[in-house]
Design a protein around this nucleic acid. Sequence first.
DNA 1: TTAATTTCAGAGTAAAATATCCGAAACTAT
DNA 2: ATAGTTTCGGATATTTTACTCTGAAATTAA
Lengths: 138, 138
Amino acid sequence: MSVLFSRPCEYALQAVLYLAQKREGEMTSAKELTSKLDIPYHFISKILQDLTYKKLLYSQTGPTGGFALAKSPKKILFLDIVEAIDGKDYKTNCVMGFSECGGEKVCAVHDKWKLIKENIHNMLVSKNIFEMAKEMNR
Amino acid sequence: MSVLFSRPCEYALQAVLYLAQKREGEMTSAKELTSKLDIPYHFISKILQDLTYKKLLYSQTGPTGGFALAKSPKKILFLDIVEAIDGKDYKTNCVMGFSECGGEKVCAVHDKWKLIKENIHNMLVSKNIFEMAKEMNR
DNA sequence: TTAATTTCAGAGTAAAATATCCGAAACTAT
DNA sequence: ATAGTTTCGGATATTTTACTCTGAAATTAA
């Protein structure tokens, strides 16, 4: 089902993008996220906790509590989320699964895949999530 | 671990590329493939059977038996293998996992991802597996 | 201070992906 | 014919990923 990123990573991207649409500092509960996005409650909760632990989100318990971005959405890139959840695997692993590929020996599509990876990286850093959230609102 | 294609698909690509290095018509056993490539015996066997069922390989039982490409490696593309095993998911699914993305509404990186997908497609069709196998031999 | 609402932490379950086993059928060579 | 070697088909097992449950701790407001 998922293409390039893990399921938790996809959910994290969706959630962060949702939070980026809120006014700065406003708290959003896991409950709201689960109803607006189509993500199981306990699962998104875990992911949000994880992002909080990694300092990308800020959280607060109690009523009026919830989650918010830890810093301005203008200063957060897609790449920050992706690397927090999935690490850098997509950058290092051979697209054909050859374990040797990368050093001395290299697979048959290594160079082409390298270019594509650069494009992907570019996609992840070229816009901040504030701009992205704004785009999606239309 | 795997980046873009499923594990079985990665294995299939490796196996087919190995077969493409053989002279036309020569049979190769699952046993040989499992020892040359780093793929579990029973698993690669299944994948080869699957590719045989899908007419990409030809097979024969008994000693001297094994698997061979069903047609000339000059007429087989990477895309043929990928679509046989994984289908077209990477072409249709949203990279952020939004189920609505694609029709009316569209996600924040839809256009960029579309370009990348075109690059990937290009990578899968620009060379046939005969050329690829030749390259990798050096 | 109590009840309600939220996140937190850790364990548990379910489903999907990956890998294995086994007995049968097909083929080859002796 | 028979023994050896291979693929075939279907079931099973294992591992990883996705998802859930439960009880506790923090916060808020009445």
